[in-house]
């Protein structure tokens, strides 16, 4: 606290990363923003006004947010219990869980897509199980549906939910749970009043990771759902690659950027506040 206002030389260690990001990311981003606003020669908000006055744009924004939210929720529901188990596990069990989580990251999305086709098609594993246990009356195709997209994307992103939650859970003093138990708290009460609130910073970080990746994914929707379903990211790609419409592409890219930055900044602020309480 007493150091407030004084420059900490350790901060200089961030300079290489900042320079690198500015060069390969920040400057091109500014160029992009410039292209979308300077299309007519003079700075203008016309591209944005045009974009937001088109009903289809709102469908695309809705698609983007809906898919990102569903993927994030699915990752949270699958990831939290996994993180809990991982934090509790010791030795070989812990190593095996960690390998199971991290190893799939080394398998490319294209390879995964073939696996998904086996799992998600009409005579695929999911369909057979669901009809087998009687939840579905007849086999259904998940491939090229939003549900299939959410399942596939969550499969790719779930490690990014598990790892931040695990790293926070691991740091919680196990005596806190024991203290709660000896005070008369049942296991369920202990979870909701001790472990869960103390792990909130990890949850918030995981949400920020997964949401921003799910909102901006391009390859996965292309492989799992195709052109009929557009998100801000796929629309940006189409604008540049197929429609040769740089202005639309830069506009959608900026909208997507604002959306994910808003979520990441909000969650970082939330995390800081929650972290301050723990």
């Amino acid at each position: 606290m007493s150091k407030a206002g004084r420059f900490d030389p350790v901060l200089l260690l961030a300079v290489p990363a900042v320079l690198y990001l500015a060069l390969v990311y920040g400057i091109p981003l500014l160029v992009l923003l410039g292209r979308s606003m300077l299309a007519g020669g003079a700075p203008s908000l016309a591209p944005f006004i045009g974009f937001f006055s088109d009903g289809f744009s709102w469908i695309v924004i809705g698609n983007t947010i809906r898919i990102a939210v569903l993927v994030t929720l699915l990752c949270l529901v699958i990831g939290y219990p996994t993180a809990l188990a991982l934090a509790r596990a010791k030795g070989l069990a812990q190593a095996l869980i960690l390998v199971a989580i991290i190893l799939p990251l080394s398998v490319g999305v294209v390879v995964k897509a073939f696996a998904w086709q086996i799992v998600l098609r009409r005579d695929g594993v999911v369909s057979q199980i669901m009809t087998g246990i009687g939840l579905w009356d007849e086999p259904q195709r998940l491939l090229f549906t939003e549900a299939g997209l959410v399942i596939g994307a969550a499969n790719v992103f779930v490690p990014f939910m598990i790892l931040p939650i695990y790293s926070v859970l691991k740091l919680i003093d196990p005596r806190l749970g024991e203290a709660a138990a000896t005070l008369g708290a049942s296991p369920v009460y202990r979870f909701f009043k001790v472990a869960l609130p103390l792990s909130l910073p990890g949850i918030v970080t995981g949400i920020a990771f997964v949401f921003s990746m799910a909102a901006s994914m391009y390859v996965i929707p292309n492989l799992l759902i195709g052109d009929r379903f557009q998100t801000l990211a796929t629309m940006t790609g189409r604008s540049f690659l197929f429609m040769r419409n740089e202005q639309l592409g830069s506009t959608t890219a900026v909208v997507l950027l604002v959306l994910t930055v808003a979520v990441v900044v909000a969650s970082a602020a939330l995390s800081k506040r929650l972290g301050g309480a723990s």
Binding site: R175, L176, A179, T182, A277
Partner: peptide, 13 residues
């Protein structure tokens, strides 16, 4: 049976 732990184990939140 209540316990007072060596490191106190108070709930930080």
């Amino acid at each position: 049976v209540s316990v007072v732990f060596q490191n106190y184990a108070l709930f930080p939140h």
